[in-house]
Design a binder for these strands. Structure first.
Lengths: 300, 300
DNA sequence: GTTTTGTTTGAAATTATAAAAAACACTTGA
DNA sequence: TCAAGTGTTTTTTATAATTTCAAACAAAAC
């Protein structure tokens, strides 16, 4: 019942490496210097030094610290291996919801999620608290959390919000200076779109990735932390929903390619109004696709 | 080290009330029914029943539960009083930051905040995790949290984001059907604006409230959970910043009244484009006011 | 007088645990 | 016999205890 001492263990091994680069008999620098170098507090450094002394690696008396022998591999302490599991928790969580089509109003068990995602409970709670800001999850009166989920309402509001952000981005893109990276990106995107259009009959499933690239490029023009935060969630949701709804996928993607190209054309012509109009059409299609994919799911 | 038994205590008192409404000798309903009625689990109900039995209030054997005497005030158990302190944590936290002008990159001590806001630590942590979604706070590598704060960058991005949302709201308002409540609201707002304009020389400080009402009405047209969530934060921030910057407050507010009236005029004329343009002008003023208020603060 | 170490204090992360919820397995009486 | 209720067990949640760590402070050494 306490916090892990991973910090100490890692620092110790790093210190061992540091000693390895020193000749036997050399003096070690001050504790403050060591703590700065290792990026930990002096408390940890002193714990490490104590262990080094115990192992007979150094002599330590006051500010006299000398290396007695070269460190051996056996001196290292094992790290409680933990594959940075809580790294992309967000991605994994959303994937889980969307992939397994977890229905709205499902109670979420922190204990269970904690196990299946291999993440400490308190981390999960903080994560859920963050998601609750997006209205995706909420607290229950009896305690615990529940998935508010992808109701029709949610999808509509999400789509609308996305539209607002993206139309703004398109308008900004149209005004971007000539040396802005967006123009090169658009050029490359046009090529990719045209290429895929040629082989749409066979490779239509490749569109999903292209779609993501396209929207990311457009939204990248607006450098705004709030927009960026939302974009992450939005793109994931749309991405997965597209993966589901296999009805008419080929037709749908072919149409979307045309819509994208229309936006690119208008942008490259620096015709802001036309670009925004084209984007509006595309986002409208996108929204109805999302909604119909939900409908199919509800029925299935 | 355990969770509090407030739930049990509250349930017990509620059960006491329930018994008070019953004649002596009456039978009590099934545990399941009681738990449903009280909104707690059967476990809690059984604990309550056990206590009722101990106090000689009821006889309890299997499914035979009978009221033996009317409950007295002394039978109640005390609640560990806690003035719903964690209610408006968000408001209080933002107020604290803005009022005391907590600088950017200040380390936030959860322990300290927990004490000063009188809120359990874990609640604060969840709260901060939520705020981190807005980029207002972030984690430190050494552990703990820190206030990213109201840097110039933050203010700019916030203003821009606000503009995007609000311009969208204005555009929607212009399209609102004739029976939409916004029209009555705008009418009332126009009257209030004109009234304040008359006595601006003396009552100019009243504008802040009027400003909030105005923007809330406009944004209310768009019913979107994401917009609403942001609106809360945005309005608070702008509200407090206006309170600070006393330079030219009268002139500033007088000008803002005109800008608001221009928006109202255009909306009531159902001229969407004019309304959006008027709003754009107003938001631009608003942004530069916010930025200059930051500048003053930096220098002070 | 500045740098370094020894010591104390307070906070953060993590776990242990009581309270509550939910699931399960029996009774009981129509 | 079977639905509704109770007794019991298992699981989960909320919270505080505990350990590790960070940082402030004070004494000492160069």
């Amino acid at each position: 019942m306490a916090r892990s001492d991973t910090r100490y263990r890692e620092a110790f091994n790093r210190l061992l490496d540091y000693c390895g680069a020193l000749p036997v008999g050399a003096a070690l620098p001050a504790e403050t210097a060591l703590s700065d170098a290792a990026g930990v507090s002096r408390t940890v450094i002193r714990r490490c030094l104590a262990r080094l002394q115990e192992l007979g690696l150094i002599s330590w008396d006051g500010r006299e610290k000398h290396l007695l022998r070269a460190p051996a591999p056996a001196d290292r302490i094992a790290l409680p291996e933990h594959g940075g599991s809580s790294e992309d928790l967000e991605k994994r969580f959303l994937s889980w919801i969307l992939r397994f089509d977890v229905p709205a109003n499902t109670p979420l068990s922190v204990a269970e999620l904690s196990r299946s995602f291999d993440v400490p409970q308190h981390e999960l709670k903080e994560f859920l608290a963050g998601l609750s800001r997006f209205g995706l999850v909420g607290r229950r009166k009896q305690g615990g959390w529940m998935l508010r989920g992808f109701t029709r309402e949610f999808a509509i509001e999400l789509s609308d919000f996305r539209s607002v952000l993206e139309l703004n981005a398109v308008a900004h893109a149209a005004e971007a200076p000539i040396d802005h990276p967006i123009w090169d990106q658009l050029d490359a995107l046009r090529t990719r779109h045209l290429a895929l259009k040629q082989r749409i009959d066979t490779d239509y499933h490749e569109f999903s990735k292209l779609d993501e690239s396209f929207h990311m490029a457009i939204n990248g023009v607006v450098s705004n932390r709030f927009v960026a935060e939302f974009q992450k969630v939005i793109s994931l949701i749309f991405h997965y929903h597209y993966m589901w709804d296999k009805t008419l996928e080929k037709t749908r993607n072919a149409a979307a390619i045309e819509e994208h190209l229309a936006i690119i054309d208008a942008l490259e012509a620096r015709d802001g109004n036309a670009a925004v109009e084209a984007a509006r059409r595309h986002l409208k299609t996108s929204k109805s696709t999302l909604l119909s994919s939900l409908r199919h799911h509800d029925l299935g």
